[in-house]
Design a protein around this nucleic acid. Sequence first.
DNA 1: ATACTCATGTAAGCTGTTACATGATTCT
DNA 2: AGAATCATGTAACAGCTTACATGAGTAT
Lengths: 193, 193
Amino acid sequence: MAELSGTAHLLLGMIRVKGRRTGYEIKRLVELSTRFFWAASPGQIYPELERLESAGLLTRSEEPHGRRARNVYSVTDQGEHALHEWLAESSAPTFELRNEALLKVFFADALAAEQQIEVVRAMRAQHEAILDGIRKATPAYRPDRKFGYITWLYGLGMHGWVIDWCKHVERDLAEGRVPLAPEGSDSVAAPPR
Amino acid sequence: MAELSGTAHLLLGMIRVKGRRTGYEIKRLVELSTRFFWAASPGQIYPELERLESAGLLTRSEEPHGRRARNVYSVTDQGEHALHEWLAESSAPTFELRNEALLKVFFADALAAEQQIEVVRAMRAQHEAILDGIRKATPAYRPDRKFGYITWLYGLGMHGWVIDWCKHVERDLAEGRVPLAPEGSDSVAAPPR
DNA sequence: ATACTCATGTAAGCTGTTACATGATTCT
DNA sequence: AGAATCATGTAACAGCTTACATGAGTAT
């Protein structure tokens, strides 16, 4: 059986953990939860659901509402098996970050002092917006979904850390206290306060 | 003039801030620095350099070593202008994260207790490896490259935070102390110690 | 001699996004 | 009546990675 894509695992996991769902429901769930570390668009979700069905990892049941088509998917035993295999698998999981705001900070030497701070402020604003989005998506806490809650806390904590870091840098920049301890102190490398 | 891609800005910035370079040198610089938040492969770098040259943002000078071809690029005034425009631009910069290890944590409810901890440990191992890579890439500290240093510290700090977070979760999981304070305490949402 | 690094590029293919197309149902 | 939401899908395209192809210079 061909390698499953990351999105395939997302769908498999989502249906397994949330129960039988339609593509549309999955799309919304992703937007509320995994979007912050694993996004998926409808243009990906629908074709992938079909592929998983014809591979025997999902079953589709047609349950129209009135005359509106509606396909509800469930995980098969084979799908359950594939999910566990992936979860247990130790080969290097993908980690990719594309942070344009940080790239601007990286090049900020090319700017005048006030504009440098502005770049850091913009980075902070973005993370504040993301943090807001995560906060609004507060998951209902249920003991069988501990890890949904844990990863939510991760989002809060990690973007919170970045925001604090930005504030720290902004302060140092404003007070001309940069280079930010290059001689081995940990005043910045360590999480700010 | 057509919108510049993210990679175009990367090249423009890199040449501006590091001085005239060959594609090959840029490739190595990216591997040592921005790779951790903005990657670029040779299959992208070389064609993009050509595009930037024909757009007038870079100039190419042929400087072969012996009979080995070698193209050294510099930023033109127009390129400098485009770079500043991008740096000052306030439209939402791309922020994309694809974290498969965290996705596994998100679905860990489907696993038995020992395997749950294992998933978190795997996530930590990955960030420890990344942190190692960043540490090895210690930038030479120069006052005209403050921000190269600052973003390096960001990498150390941010992956350090994640590692601490994983340790924290592992401990709580091992001691059965999860749900990790769901009732409003900040024992986990706040950066661990 | 051999291996490694320097150096430039191309082609195939995968992943993913955006935008579009379509239409039913439910809410106000 | 009109707007929002439910629901499914497709097509075009952008972006990026991998692997390949080629070969010269340098260090061991």
